[in-house]
Design a protein around this nucleic acid. Structure first.
Lengths: 188, 188
DNA sequence: ACCTGAACACCGTTCAAGT
DNA sequence: ACCTGAACACCGTTCAAGT
């Protein structure tokens, strides 16, 4: 890693730290510069304005999310589980909120809001979810012949669940039970 | 409506306009003051800081959402439809994105992001979704004996769909078809 | 290629003062 | 009760200048 790369990594890491701790509203170029340990003008040399900085930071964040995701999903191999039901239980437990700890959810909520005003961010979000779908598709194919259908059920559900889970009449356990029943019905 | 009430309405309306057009990041007290037609200090007399203004504006926005929602849902009476399937088709078409035009979705994304940093906003969001669930529960009860289950499926799904619909392998029509099949299976 | 520092218009918040 | 205006520390961006 040469000096430039190191600098960039340092800056993006600082940006993500501030973003997840204080939110986009309180993120400022000056604050990031201070946290990353360079002058404001020098930060602007690497990222010409706040938009450019945010876009690079979000892309950086998505990359680390993908790495985390592949690690988590690689542990979960269908072949090594005793039954579809138990496999689904583990998979759904992972998908619903767990991967999305509070920090994670807050970052995504910031990113959703930012992306609705910025075409480049919108594209980055789309690429992230597309890749996410590719992984999921592969995973679901291991036990179902209709992966597109189950994917189109699970991916939106998991995102929405992270937002409204606290107002639902069913608890997480019951929700997983329901989803398993649905998936088995759709699969057979 | 007395003068104070009129002033407040004027301010909140201006806030929502700026919020939906430019986002929370670019919303400023001075801008709202200008749009609402009063001085900065006078705006601060009614809402002591930006937080207070945002909270009041979001609550105001939610109220208008609820009115809109009841109007839309009141048109859709199960009794007046020829079959469950057609009724569900109309209901799902309404729930998936349609109510949430782009403006609507952008507002909600702003609100989700803001609420993750603010307890009061978090509470307002929870109250909104709780009320939403009550309406939905009533609606679903008209054709199903397991309204809690179907609600726990549809509410998260609709929210998540607004975020990721553009990366799904199924189009809206197919998604609705899938959901109808699931609901009929769960209901029987 | 990398970094500095001053300047500009704008921001939220505070406060002392008017009617 | 309602409204004003000045002051403060902070913000993003621009720019001319250094190594």
């Amino acid at each position: 890693m040469d000096k430039r790369e190191e600098r960039l990594h340092q800056i993006l890491q600082a940006t993500i730290t501030v973003l997840s701790k204080e939110g986009a509203e309180k993120l400022s170029m000056r604050k990031v510069a201070k946290v990353a340990g360079l002058s404001l003008s020098n930060l602007q040399y690497y990222y010409k304005d706040k938009d450019a900085l945010l876009i690079a930071a979000v892309q950086h964040y998505f990359e680390s999310c993908q790495e985390e995701l592949t690690l988590e999903l690689n542990v979960l191999k269908f072949e090594s589980e005793p039954s579809i039901t138990i496999y689904l239980q583990k998979l759904l437990d992972l998908l619903l909120m767990n991967g999305k700890s509070n920090d994670h959810l807050m970052m995504f909520q910031e990113i959703w809001a930012l992306s609705s005003r910025n075409k480049e961010l919108q594209k980055a979000v789309e690429i992230y979810y597309s890749n996410y779908c590719v992984w999921m598709m592969e995973l679901i194919s291991s036990f179902s012949k209709k992966p597109e259908v189950i994917l189109s059920l699970l991916v939106p559900y998991a995102e929405g669940y992270s937002i409204v889970s606290n107002v639902l009449p069913l608890d997480k356990e019951k929700v997983i039970e329901m989803l398993i029943q649905i998936i088995l019905n759709l699969t057979e």
